[in-house]
Amino acid sequence: MTADPISRSRVETAVASTDILGETPLWCDRSRKLWWIDIDGRLHQSFDPATGAHHVWSYDCQFLGSQALTADGTHLLAQDLSLSRRMFDDAPPARFCEVESGLDNRLNDGRVDARGRLWIGTMDNQLHRPNGSLYRVSADGEVMRLFDGVIVTNGIAFAPDNRTLYFTDTRRYCTWKFDFDLDDGVIRNRRLFADYSASKDRPDGACVDVDGGLWTAFFSGGRVARYRPDGRIDKVIPLPVTNPTCLCFGGCDLKTLFVTTARKFLDRQQLGIEPQAGHLLAIHGVAQGLPEHRVSIDPCGPTPPA
């Protein structure tokens, strides 16, 4: 099957941000805003398409690695190796749980399943050691490690029928799929879905559409692509930036594909010819997404450590 190319002219800037490492875009159907982070800039950001308003909050950590929406309207933020709850407006974040300790790692990509559990992974800060792991975090803050040997966790996504979990290790250049048991929160039968170990292409963040297509951003590859559930690519969108990082569907009809991007690793010359590097991009009408699931936070919160 030949992939259907989508014109680069359909790609526009939603927010002319200057993200060092923009990541983890999520559409909130309550606030009708797009939320995303700048990992290295330690920024949590929102964009309201109806008004054009762009708001930014800064946090005191080394890396703001990921985010998730919650059932009570707050956000979970991954700060270094811990999760914290961003309450409302300018209130300081409240510690939720520690996911990992003792390694030169940080939290990276994550996604919430239909039962309100957060699946999130760690990555090696040096980008080459298999120090990372995938974890499942429950509503009461219980952390379960599922497997290790990961260099850079990315591309966590669930198929619309809740029977498949996708997982990418960007620095192993591969995406895998697992059978997923929604009721028990168990994954099994790991197998390769996309293998770029020969070309060294870097699949990064991912999301799914209503038809089960897996959309993936290729860091250092200047494109996003859609995989059919059988692993064949049927759509490719070239981008005006080298480093797209992650993507999600948003807008009131969930038909706008938002793409975060990065200025990181680009020299002055490259930045000069890529004025949209670090911007939040938007592509309208290429597919329809699904609402994001929310972490079912226990109202009492996790039990603090002794």
Rank of each mutant, 00 (worst) to 15 (best):
M1K: 15
M1H: 15
A3W: 13
D4Y: 12
R8K: 08
V15Q: 00
S17R: 06
T24C: 09
P25V: 04
W27V: 09
C28Q: 12
S31D: 13
K33T: 08
L34F: 03
W36Q: 00
I37A: 05
I39F: 03
G41S: 07
Q45V: 02
S46M: 08
T51G: 07
V56F: 04
W57T: 05
W57D: 00
Y59N: 01
F63L: 04
Q67E: 07
A68W: 06
L69W: 12
A71N: 10
G73N: 08
A78M: 02
A78N: 03
A78E: 00
R86C: 00
F88W: 11
D89P: 03
A91Q: 04
P92N: 12
C97W: 10
E98T: 14
E100K: 01
N108L: 09
G116M: 06
G116N: 01
G116Q: 00
L118H: 08
W119K: 02
T122R: 05
M123G: 00
D124I: 02
Q126G: 09
Q126L: 13
H128N: 15
R129L: 14
N131R: 12
N131P: 04
E142W: 04
F147K: 11
F147W: 10
D148E: 05
V150F: 09
V150D: 12
V152P: 10
G155M: 13
A159L: 15
N162S: 13
N162K: 09
R163M: 13
D169I: 13
R172A: 14
C174V: 13
T175H: 08
F180P: 02
D184C: 12
G185R: 03
G185A: 00
R188Y: 08
R190L: 11
L192K: 12
A194K: 01
D195C: 01
S197A: 07
S199Y: 11
D201T: 11
P203M: 06
G213S: 15
W215G: 00
T216F: 12
F218Y: 10
F219P: 02
G221T: 05
V224Y: 07
R228A: 10
D230A: 00
D234W: 06
V236W: 08
I237W: 00
P244I: 11
C248R: 09
F249T: 07
D253P: 02
T256R: 04
L257V: 01
T261H: 01
A262E: 05
Q270V: 09
L271P: 09
A277L: 07
A277K: 04
L280I: 05
L281H: 01
H284N: 12
V286N: 14
V286G: 10
Q288I: 08
L290R: 12
P291N: 03
E292K: 13
E292Y: 06
E292W: 14
D298H: 05
D298C: 09
C300S: 11
G301V: 01
G301E: 04
T303R: 15
